[in-house]
Design a protein around this nucleic acid. Structure first.
Length: 649
DNA sequence: GGCGCGAATAGT
DNA sequence: CTATTCGCGCCT
């Protein structure tokens, strides 16, 4: 008989069921294959988890209907990792398996050779990138020796096209391969995949690695998955879904830029790549590597718990690699060129750009419309909040009064609770308008844009202004001569506890594309207060992301917020939330906020918080609650999200 | 979720 | 009496 995980889509049936194996399927119904089974009168999909002699189920077993494909696509290690991810997020195994195993594509299965070709010998090469980091070579040696080291690397910027972070990751993958193991590299977006692929080709030679991304289409994605499964590829680079790739003898899981929200899976149970990686590393005894120009607070917490060790370059090496950073504030010269004033450019920024354009391209980072802050107090700059529900105030339309973005209450007479100011500030920024205004402020200089819609890969070396939204910055062949980071307040004044972390991450990403200070590289941060130096600003100026991350972590702990505390967001009707609160057996350490009304459509929400160590207990309780609701077909259910992206927003 | 079963109900 | 509907429990 066979133990089958049936894809029922029902929380209370998210467990294995037993089936007899007809003689015709005895050889093919092996663990990991997809099957069709009869379940409650319908034909459903499932995976064979195990074959066993005796059944545990006391009743009669149904026979398997069909083995869909003889390919054992769900390998035991990935299953165990998926189970751990489901448990952590109070989600169902079925949901996680949908993320982990791509849909079958029969033609792809037939087209790819079953047996992998012999791997060509590795091109001789020793690591270059890792030599700059004190603990770098030891980490690689540990990987090659078959160990399971963990590291958080603060990557040095490099403007050379044959160096930098993609090569750093490729060299780590090579270290695993040299030890006879494979590697997974997860990056936020498609452009990053291309860069790492190029680095892998150089470091590993060709034919040892493959790309695995969701956007490559069903056939290509399944082909890539099979290449990994059948051992054609030892190293995988890809976006989110690649974290589940069934690499044989997995030795390393690496991911780039932990703070990038693209690493947050948008489908249930919403696992972050970091958690998938950690679950799989625990199962498979693999090493882990979190790399970035910034260190997210979540990664800082792993460092503190000794899951990851710090791998950082000495201060002198950092100073040699990074540009000089100036904070320009918002000061405007009243008597300067009106075109410059219209572009919202502080005079320091304008002069810096003017001088730098002689030497090369200048990057201008402009926050996206979506990053417009809620309104804040004109006098003290604190985010303006709704006096009823403490939600952020925003402008619902181009005209008209401000309103709460949570409960919709219209604010007619704002008074700041901190300074008693009565004026609100907001300003419309956007890359398009900035590009037009910059064109007028720098007549004769070509202006290019990169952002939503058209993302540029790279720009030529000559003088030009490159206006980009965060995350869409093109690379410049020898680095930018300067970068202007505009409207810093738009990132900093968001009513979110992660605003500082997010701002620093984006600034560092842009500044890392600028030449070192010794080569004339300069960065101007415009639009941050010069009176109060916020930690994110100080960290950028000193290029000290470790200091910032540690500091933020201490603050989060103080406030009982993630990542030192696990949070779960419950959403539903007020009655449903109150019933849930009564029904849940929460750990003694749990704190419940709310329920509070959220949004205009009658929905309420509550947030449950426990210390990180009780996270699994909380998830178990929430999963049991969902199972009960599913079994009784609750018409008024509560939705659960563990680790909501921003529990404060 | 969907199905089958038994009780309840309407139509004959 | 049967045909139909409805609610509920279970699904290997």
């Amino acid at each position: 008989m066979a133990v089958v995980q049936v894809d029922t889509g029902l929380a209370h049936l998210d467990r294995p069921f037993e089936y007899t194996v007809p003689e015709s399927m005895a050889a093919t119904a092996v663990p990991g294959v997809r099957v069709k089974v009869r379940f409650a009168g319908q034909d459903l999909d499932g995976f064979v988890l195990e074959r066993r002699e005796a059944a545990e189920h006391p009743g009669r077993l149904s026979p398997l209907r069909r083995v869909v494909s003889p390919e054992p696509v769900l390998v035991p290690e990935v299953l165990r990792g998926a189970r751990a991810v489901a448990d952590r997020y109070a989600g169902s195994l079925g949901d996680v398996l949908r993320l982990a195993v791509p849909p079958r594509h029969a033609a792809a299965e037939k087209a790819l050779a079953v047996d992998p070709p012999a791997h060509p010998p590795l091109p001789p090469r020793s690591s270059r990138e890792w030599q700059a980091y004190a603990a770098g070579p030891a980490f690689l040696a540990h990987l090659t020796a078959g160990g399971a080291p963990g590291a958080s690397v603060l990557t040095l910027p490099s403007t050379r096209s044959d160096a930098g972070w993609p090569v750093l990751l490729a060299e780590a993958a090579r270290a695993a391969v040299e030890g006879g193991r494979g590697a997974v590299i997860v990056v936020p977006d498609h452009r990053d995949v291309v860069r790492v692929e190029a680095a892998l080709a150089e470091v590993l030679g060709s034919a040892r690695h493959t790309r695995l991304t969701a956007d490559q289409g069903p056939q290509a994605r399944y082909t890539a998955y099979l290449k990994v499964l059948r051992g054609h590829a030892q190293v995988v680079v890809g976006t989110r879904a690649a974290a589940f790739a069934p690499v044989r003898d997995l030795g390393l899981l690496a991911w780039w830029d932990d703070g990038d929200d693209l690493l947050d899976e948008p489908r249930a149970p919403y696992p972050h790549v970091r958690e998938v990686v950690l679950a799989r590393a625990a199962v498979e005894g693999a090493g882990v590597l979190a790399a970035g120009f910034a260190r997210s607070v979540a990664v800082a917490e792993l460092v503190e718990r000794l899951v990851l060790t710090r791998v950082e370059a000495p201060r002198a090496a950092v100073r040699r690699a990074v540009p000089a950073v100036h904070v320009a504030g918002e000061g405007h010269d009243p008597d300067r060129d009106p075109a410059v004033a219209a572009a919202h450019l502080p005079s320091v920024a304008w002069r810096t750009a003017k001088e730098a354009l002689v030497a090369g391209p200048v990057l201008v980072q402009v926050p996206r419309r979506g990053y417009l802050p809620a309104l804040s107090c004109q006098d003290c700059r604190r985010p303006a909040r709704c006096p009823v529900c403490a939600g952020p105030l925003g402008l619902p339309g181009p005209q008209g009064p401000p309103a709460c973005r949570w409960c919709g209450r219209v604010e007619t007479a704002f008074t700041c609770p901190s300074c008693a100011g009565t004026r609100l500030r907001s300003s419309v920024v956007g890359a398009r308008r900035t590009a037009e205004e910059l064109g007028r402020a720098f007549p004769g200089v070509p202006v290019e844009r990169s952002g939503a819609g058209t993302v540029l890969e790279a720009v030529p070396a000559g003088p030009r202004l490159v206006v980009s939204t965060p995350g869409a910055e093109p690379v410049a062949p020898e680095g930018y001569a300067a970068a202007l980071l505009l409207d810093a307040w738009a990132l900093l004044e968001r009513p979110s506890l992660t605003a500082g972390e997010e701002a620093l991450r984006r600034w560092l990403a842009a500044a890392a594309l600028v030449r070192p200070a010794d080569a004339g590289g300069r960065v101007v941060l415009a639009g941050a207060s010069t009176e109060v130096t916020l930690p994110a600003v100080e960290a950028l100026v000193r290029w000290d992301p470790a200091w910032f991350a540690d500091r933020e972590l201490a603050e989060r702990r103080h406030l009982s917020l993630p990542p030192t505390h696990r949070t779960a967001l419950l959403t539903g009707s007020r009655a449903a939330l109150e019933a849930a609160a009564a029904e849940l057996h929460l750990p003694d350490s749990a704190a419940v906020l709310g329920p509070l009304p959220h949004g205009a459509d009658g929905l309420w929400r509550a947030i449950v918080t426990v210390p990180e160590t009780d996270g699994l207990a909380l998830a178990r309780e929430l999963a049991a609650m969902r199972a009960r609701a599913s079994a009784r077909k609750d018409p008024d259910p509560v939705t659960v999200r563990v680790d909501p992206p921003d529990p404060s927003a």
